[in-house]
Design a binder for these strands. Structure first.
Lengths: 339, 339
DNA sequence: AGCGGCGTTCAAAACGTTTAAGCTCCTCTA
DNA sequence: TAGAGGAGCTTAAACGTTTTGAACGCCGCT
């Protein structure tokens, strides 16, 4: 309506009270009289008042902003995580400031520096390989709570919410070994990021436990992309003594692997077994549907947000390491090895 | 290092200059002497200075924040859009404040109100059905630039970047009619959102143009979810005189439709043709691969961000309506109708 | 000597909140 | 009747920037 920006002062002037009263009234402080509060809130509504968080934030050193930093927003698994985070954050009155770094450590550094300037109350980070305590110093020193999600940085005494990667890999191995497979590959992941490292360690350990011989040629390193799965499985099938099954780093690479197997005229599930990891929505719909580890994205996202917000509200306790056990969902891409 | 928060004042004091000089120096203003600038920047670096955007924003009424509001972050198409937006925004020094509303108009209203408080420089909105000029008044009146993405609000004189939905639908119809189909269904979408309305209008128009009889039973309204496609195609196949092909509102519902068709023992592409819309990455990988309209998500996202940022920088011109023509990608789910 | 102009720096106000401390009344109690 | 106590409101300072207008010192010119 009026051209003038409507601030606390303007409202105060019009109602002939002080800005302090207006401020208090709008925030439902018990110290202002019932009648005044109503008068103020009504006026604010009528005048189209909009709270200025920059000003408030400057004064209070709080922002109600949660910074969320991911590598790749295009991966459906992370989307489902982000969706869960956003939803829970909104429920608890926080907003999401988003940053992505596309698996580049340098870009992550830049992104973190930028987001830091907005004085977020907290940070949810799925860290790039190579990230250390030092990388995060700007946040840690400022006392900004940090919750690591999915990926865990070694030797960092900070909260973590993610899945029990080792347990997941063991479950996948158990399943395949139970079906009779003896030469099992692992596609994707690397030792620079905890998710890869832990699963690969469990993979090795399961070989020892079951007396299988570990063949380094069956461990194909790489990112978890569709392309990677396709290429990786191709390389494996070209081996003189190819494996009969593969565990993929995530569903995306498992889809790629299905494709690669199919393209060679083989049938996934019958001629070659594939286990994914994540259980994104898409997984149930492939033909054949993907056997995979359900990675509890909604639960992880929500708990991460909750834990972070609790920290922002002063919940001060030893850092928590929350590891949810993934659940194996057996579908159509696994079967006993062909004779 | 030191416990004290390091602000411009602190740096100024230490170097025995004024805060004005420090502020200017840090922003590479040409009025400060070369030597001073270096001295200041060095000190700032050493002391671990972090720019406080709340303070700056309060003073300048700018935030370098772009609010982005979507219905559903879990749809891969929107993820690809969001990814493109975020990337371009980062390149141009802006950050993304994210809000989602899950197709609920009321939630959208709340989300917009919240984001508004952060004084974003601009807004990218993919609006809920029912949104009007009035809904957006808080932004429009405040002169905050708004770019509509994908979904266009009727009678709103604001920028728009999206695809030419009518042209896309026509291309899909042309393709199917060219293959010999005469009873073609359309699954998903509704008239409350421009994407649905325009495609459905084009669908009707193509019937008239080619002398096909329009059967309302072949127009299945609904959201663009996997479930919707599955259910929708089921309903169609139960018809006494079922269609031989369907155009789906988006790829997600097309995937659902493929599934539904397959479950009835029919083979998509041979027994029933399906055209999707979006061309998400997943589309090329289904078996059979999905015939769909490539919707240029990266280009749309980037151009949306660019246009909005231009507006924020004062680019003042008549509102633009940018409509990119989708491109039909013919793959395995379309073929001539069975005899 | 005086003056104009240039390059550099500074003081101070402003942005819109929050909050600690204090001020008025008024009522209640001793 | 004095004083305590409390309810309700206000004053004023503070948060950390940016920006305007002025001032300062110096140089070269007339």
């Amino acid at each position: 309506m009026s051209d003038e920006r409507v601030t606390l002062q303007v409202i105060a002037q019009r109602l002939e009270v002080s800005t302090a009263t207006v401020s208090l009234a709008l925030r439902d402080s018990p110290v202002v009289a019932e009648a005044t509060r109503e008068r103020v809130q009504k006026a604010a509504r009528e005048m189209g008042y909009v709270y200025n968080r920059s000003a408030a934030s400057l004064r209070t050193a709080r922002s109600d902003i949660l910074a969320v930093v991911f590598h790749d927003i295009t991966n459906p698994y992370f989307m489902e995580l982000l969706g869960a985070i956003e939803e829970r954050a909104a429920e608890r009155g926080r907003s999401i400031l988003l940053g992505t770094y596309g698996e580049s450590f340098e870009r992550q550094t830049r992104v973190l520096a930028t987001l830091r300037e907005y004085r977020p109350d907290g940070l949810i980070l799925c860290a790039a390989g190579g990230t250390s305590r030092e990388t995060l110093a700007p946040f840690l020193n400022a006392g900004i709570p940090l919750v690591q999600m999915m990926r865990e940085i070694p030797d960092l005494e900070a909260d973590f919410v993610g899945s029990d990667d080792a347990a997941g890999a063991r479950a996948a191995m158990d399943h395949l070994i139970g079906l009779g497979h003896r030469r099992i590959a692992i596609i994707g992941g690397s030792d620079t990021v905890s998710t890869g490292r832990l699963r690969r360690e469990a993979y090795r350990e399961m070989h020892a436990r079951h007396g299988l011989t570990l063949d380094p040629a069956l461990m194909v390193e790489g990112f978890g992309t569709r392309e990677m799965g396709d290429i990786g499985v191709g390389r494996l099938l070209d081996l003189p003594d190819p494996p009969t099954a593969a565990i993929c780093f995530n569903d995306l690479s498992a889809f790629g692997a299905i494709l690669g197997v199919t393209r060679r005229g083989m049938q996934p599930g019958r001629d070659f077994s594939i286990v994914g990891c994540d259980d994104v929505k898409e997984a149930a719909q492939w033909v054949p549907a993907l056997t995979t580890l359900h990675n509890r994205q909604v639960e992880i996202g929500a708990r991460t947000a909750d834990l972070l917000i609790d920290r922002c509200m002063g919940f001060d306790d030893a850092p928590q390491k929350i590891r949810l056990t993934p659940e194996l969902v057996v579908r159509g891409t696994t079967a006993p090895p062909p004779r």
